[in-house]
Amino acid sequence: MGFKLLSKLLVYLTASIMAIASPLAFSVDSSGEYPTVSEIPVGEVRLYQIADGVWSHIATQSFDGAVYPSNGLIVRDGDELLLIDTAWGAKNTAALLAEIEKQIGLPVTRAVSTHFHDDRVGGVDVLRAAGVATYASPSTRRLAEVEGNEIPTHSLEGLSSSGDAVRFGPVELFYPGAAHSTDNLIVYVPSASVLYGGCAIYELSRTSAGNVADADLAEWPTSIERIQQHYPEAQFVIPGHGLPGGLDLLKHTTNVVKAHTNRSVVE
């Protein structure tokens, strides 16, 4: 069995187990497998329904001669939608809004960016022009300005110390501490036991640490421990890039980060 097929099978099995364990909360999309990078042309966006009122959005972007996937989250909030992270750029984010209108038909009224990198804030200006209120932590807003990236308009308070959590509509926002970046936030959907790890969490097929220019490698494993301790009931975990899975993604990420750190020390 090929690795790609095995990865998709694991996603399907995880979703099936969740649907059985929580039949009222989960209505997993039966329309197909989780979209992969090879299936999404740059400039297009796919939506994948995880649970009743919960979707991931998947886009792709060219970077350094390669094409990478990027995940975000959409959560229903009454007759409105909360968006977590842009679709990595203005063109993708405009396509995301169009796809949401086509498939869901509810307005996106608020959006949260989970850290300051372009795959999370690139497209904020498109959201703002569409009347979406954009939010991020003060740290993310400051770092985005320093980096020359787009800056969300509103500040999220109460997320300055490791372990801080605040309720934001249908989700809980959690600051686990520094990891992929010093400002990275985690998003949890309690009604569906869905954990969105953003770039602080890796997919299972990833074996290298990737972009760690703004990471705190020493603190990252401790931050992941905080996530595990705060959300032990999480059933569906979405990484910032690639295929979702279960809580095993947290341990896998820790292993990859520690291996990278150990290699760096040896070198």
Rank of each mutant, 00 (worst) to 15 (best):
M1I: 04
M1V: 04
L5H: 08
L5Q: 09
L6K: 05
K8W: 06
K8T: 09
L10H: 08
L10T: 10
V11C: 13
Y12H: 06
Y12M: 05
Y12E: 05
Y12C: 07
L13E: 07
T14P: 12
T14S: 11
A15K: 11
S16A: 07
S16T: 10
I17Q: 05
I17W: 05
M18C: 05
M18T: 05
A19E: 08
A19P: 08
P23G: 12
F26Y: 08
F26L: 10
F26K: 15
S27H: 08
S31G: 11
P35G: 11
V37I: 07
S38G: 09
P41Q: 06
G43V: 04
R46N: 06
R46Q: 12
L47D: 03
Y48K: 08
Y48R: 08
D52W: 06
G53I: 12
G53W: 11
S56T: 13
S62R: 10
S62G: 10
F63T: 11
D64K: 15
Y68K: 03
S70V: 04
G72W: 01
L73G: 09
L73N: 01
L73I: 07
I74Q: 01
V75L: 11
V75W: 02
R76N: 07
D77T: 08
E80A: 11
L83S: 02
T86V: 06
A87D: 00
K91T: 12
N92H: 05
A94F: 12
A94M: 13
L96P: 02
A98G: 09
I100D: 02
K102P: 05
K102C: 14
K102F: 05
Q103L: 15
I104S: 00
I104M: 09
P107W: 05
V112S: 02
V112T: 03
V112K: 03
F116M: 05
D118Y: 06
R120S: 10
V121F: 02
G122L: 15
G123A: 03
V124N: 11
D125I: 07
A129G: 12
A130S: 08
A130H: 14
V132K: 02
V132S: 04
T134L: 03
T134C: 11
A136M: 04
P138N: 07
P138G: 14
S139A: 13
S139Q: 10
R141E: 04
R142P: 02
L143A: 08
A144K: 05
E147V: 12
N149P: 14
N149D: 14
E150G: 13
I151A: 10
I151N: 15
S155I: 06
E157R: 14
E157V: 15
E157D: 15
G158C: 04
S160D: 13
G163D: 09
G163V: 08
A165K: 13
A165R: 11
V166P: 04
V166G: 05
P170Y: 04
A178T: 08
A179L: 02
H180C: 00
N184I: 02
N184S: 03
N184Y: 02
Y188W: 13
P190T: 05
G198P: 00
A200F: 03
A200H: 04
S208T: 12
N211S: 10
N211A: 10
N211R: 07
V212N: 11
V212G: 11
V212P: 13
D214K: 07
A215T: 06
L217A: 14
W220D: 01
P221L: 13
S223A: 06
I224A: 05
Q228F: 04
Q229M: 13
H230M: 10
Y231H: 04
P232M: 12
E233F: 14
P244A: 06
G246R: 07
G246N: 06
L249V: 06
L250D: 01
K251D: 05
T254D: 07
V256C: 04
V256D: 03
A259V: 09
R263I: 08
V265H: 13
